[in-house]
Amino acid sequence: MNTPPTPSSSNRREGPPADGFSILRPPSPPIRRARHRTVLPGFGISAAITSLMIVALVVIPLAVLILRAASLGPTGFLAAAWTPRARAAYAVSLGSSLTAAIISSLLGLLVAWVLVRLEFPGRRILDALVDVPLALPTAVAGLVYSTLYVEKGWLGQWLVPVGIKGAYSLLGIVLVLVFVSLPFAIRVVQPVIESLDKDTEEAARLLGASRSQTFFRVVLPGILPAVVTGFALALARALGEYGSVVFISGNMPFKTEIAPVLIVSRLEEFAYAEATAIAVVLLGMSLSMLVVVNDLQQRLVRNSQ
């Protein structure tokens, strides 16, 4: 019968070193270690470049903007940012951006679905064309849209007589905002549709679900978080858009003037305080939208799991 050593004694051979001087050796002290704990080089320089750029370009400018607005005091701020014209501009901005983001999300879902799930001639070209709004300067888009939808334009000649005014109107604003935000809505949803498990859909069909039941109960919950993300990106882009809208909206105060356009016109009047106050409201609007949408998205992700 063998006599096993206890577990602790198995380390016996790692006892004191055999050189006989071990007693003179100080016990291994805890050694000071680099904070980032990796042998990879370049932490210092990359941290320096990154923080310099972020601080100089993002943190300081936004801080200055907010501090400048705060220096107006509550009443001064309200007087500058909450004029009837400004309120109208917020409403136009918010309304047209939300409408555009919703349209973009729906159309984006359609296009993404078709690109992923259906094979047809020209699919790859269509896929590439989706990115045009990312590459085309928005000023060009605005210019073209305004010429397309005026009374003599390619599309305007048909649409204006039936009462659809696509230029110098709210509709025009929504149109260009859909244009600039569409790629975001498509590109976020597309990979998620690609990663969907086709077997679950087939299983649902085999279990007797109709095509629409399958879509709404099986497919949609899986892609909804991505649709919401795409919506958020589209909305953020639409809220801040200036270049294309300025061409097509006509920029009529109280009617088709969006907040960024109002900021610029205040700036051109050297009304810095007012411009700053409106800018802070716009900034707050986009950031709070992001927070709301992020929260919604996380809830959706949790639900679909």
Partner: peptide, 24 residues
């Protein structure tokens, strides 16, 4: 190998302490 650092203790090579020697 020097790809991670110990929190405490040391590594010796032929009796030389190489704990702080860089992997390179």
């Amino acid at each position: 190998a020097g790809l991670e650092w110990p929190d405490s203790g040391r590594i010796e090579e032929d009796g030389t302490d190489i704990t702080d020697r860089h992997a390179r």
